[in-house]
Amino acid sequence: MTSAKEGPLLEVRGIRKSFLSGTRQVDVLKGIEMSVAAGRLTMLRGRSGSGKTTLLNLMGGLDRPSEGEVLFRSRPLHQWSDKRLTVVRRKEIGFIFQAFALLPLLTARENVELSLRMAGVPRTEWKERVARCLDLVGLTKRAFHRPSELSGGEQQRVAIAKAIAHRPLLLLADEPTAELDSLMAARIIAVFREVVEAERIAICMTTHDSTLWGAADVVYQMVDGRIVPE
């Protein structure tokens, strides 16, 4: 695993992203420079529409920049083919979205197993790894419950367990606490801190919730498509 001493796990250099709205060009990102270090919790803070989600999608290879570079482990993520990006997302990068993205007919345990199946992890390793991840997020006793039998906070913790099961180097989370009350949001961030410490996974998340910023190792403030000084 990449260490902080070896340089950033992910770097964003001069990123610009534009879209066409009819005949008008809309500049969403305007020259972003930032990095994410291994074993750190990084937050992108800013209001809705500031460009946080667009930036996160570029960092995970879900979209491509109009200009600039996205380097993952010093490799040009933005230049890779869709096939290569798919492999990297399954093995080295995990995602958490506002919608919990759990399959409703599967139990918590089975949802986490699905991540291991997609990453090609040998079945002989599933039982131990699933147990480890559910324990890490405090859901050992809820392993055989389906999403409809879990609270919103519990579903989000299953989503975290699922996202880290295949041991990614980087976890990207888009407003993971947006649909939760303040108490549950704090619990989710506590889980993130535990994941960073126990698994040495780098986490980069977006949020507009000012009560969470103090838990981060690094905070980038985004305003109108730019990163501005704190």
Score class of each variant (00 low, 15 high):
Arg47Pro: 02
Gly153Arg: 01
Ile160Thr: 05
Met118Arg: 11
Lys5Leu: 15
Gln25Pro: 09
Ser182Thr: 15
Asp135Trp: 05
Ala185Glu: 12
Val112Ser: 00
Val191Ala: 10
Ile227Cys: 10
Gly225His: 11
Val218Gly: 00
Val87Asp: 12
Leu150Trp: 06
Val26Ala: 00
Gln98Leu: 03
Ala173Gly: 02
Leu10Trp: 07
Asp63Thr: 04
Leu55Arg: 08
Glu92Asn: 09
Glu149Gly: 06
Thr42Asp: 08
Ala173Ile: 01
Gly94Pro: 05
Leu102Pro: 06
Val228Lys: 08
Thr23Ala: 12
Glu197Tyr: 11
Cys133Thr: 06
Leu103Asp: 00
Leu114Asn: 09
Ile189Val: 15
Glu230Gly: 15
Ala185Thr: 02
Leu20Lys: 14
Val191Arg: 03
Ser210Tyr: 14
Arg40Ile: 08
Leu10Pro: 01
Gly51Ala: 03
Arg226Thr: 14
Gly46Asn: 08
Tyr220Ala: 03
Pro122Glu: 08
His166Cys: 09
Glu175Cys: 06
Leu116Asp: 11
Asp217Pro: 12
Val87Met: 12
Asp82Pro: 01
Met118Asp: 07
Met184Cys: 01
Arg132Pro: 05
Thr211Lys: 10
Leu56Gln: 10
Thr177Pro: 02
Leu136Ile: 01
Val88Lys: 00
Val26Ser: 00
Asn111Val: 06
Pro104His: 00
Ala119Gly: 09
Glu128Lys: 13
Glu230Ser: 15
Leu150Glu: 04
Thr54Gly: 11
Thr42Asn: 09
His145Asp: 08
Glu113Asn: 03
Arg24Trp: 04
Ile15Phe: 09
Leu71Phe: 01
Asp135Pro: 06
Leu116Cys: 13
Asn111Phe: 05
Ser48Phe: 04
Asp181Leu: 05
Ser35Pro: 05
His145Cys: 00
Gly14Met: 06
Thr2Asn: 10
Asp209Cys: 01
Leu58Met: 11
Leu169His: 14
Lys162Met: 15
Ala159Leu: 10
Glu92Gly: 02
Gly7Trp: 09
Ala186Leu: 03
Arg193Gly: 06
Gly153Ile: 03
Ile203Asp: 04
Arg64Tyr: 12
Arg200His: 13
Leu172His: 10
Gly138Asn: 08
Ala143Val: 04
Glu67Cys: 05
Ser182Asn: 11
Arg73Cys: 01
Met118Tyr: 15
Lys52His: 01
Leu169Met: 12
Ala159Asp: 08
Ser3Val: 07
Gly68Met: 01
His208Leu: 05
Met205Arg: 12
Ala178Ile: 12
Ile15Glu: 08
Ile96Met: 14
Leu71Cys: 01
Asp224Gly: 07
Ser21Gly: 00
Val26Asn: 02
Leu169Ile: 07
Glu6Gln: 15
Leu85Ser: 07
Trp126Cys: 08
Thr54Ala: 14
Thr207Asp: 02
Lys141Tyr: 03
Asp217Asn: 13
Pro176Arg: 04
Gly39Thr: 05
Ser66Gly: 15
Val219Thr: 15
Lys127Ala: 15
Leu62Gly: 10
Asn57His: 15
Pro229Val: 06
Ala186Asn: 10
Leu105Asn: 04
Phe144Leu: 13
Ala178His: 09
Lys52Ile: 01
Pro229Asp: 07
Lys162Glu: 01
Val228His: 09
Arg45Pro: 05
Val130Pro: 08
Glu69Ile: 03
Thr211Tyr: 02
Thr177Ala: 02
Asp174Asn: 02
Gln155Cys: 10
Phe19Trp: 15
Leu62Ala: 13
Ala4Thr: 13
Leu150Asn: 07
Gln25Arg: 15
Gly61Arg: 11
Glu194Tyr: 06
Val36Asn: 11
Leu103Lys: 02
Pro76Phe: 04
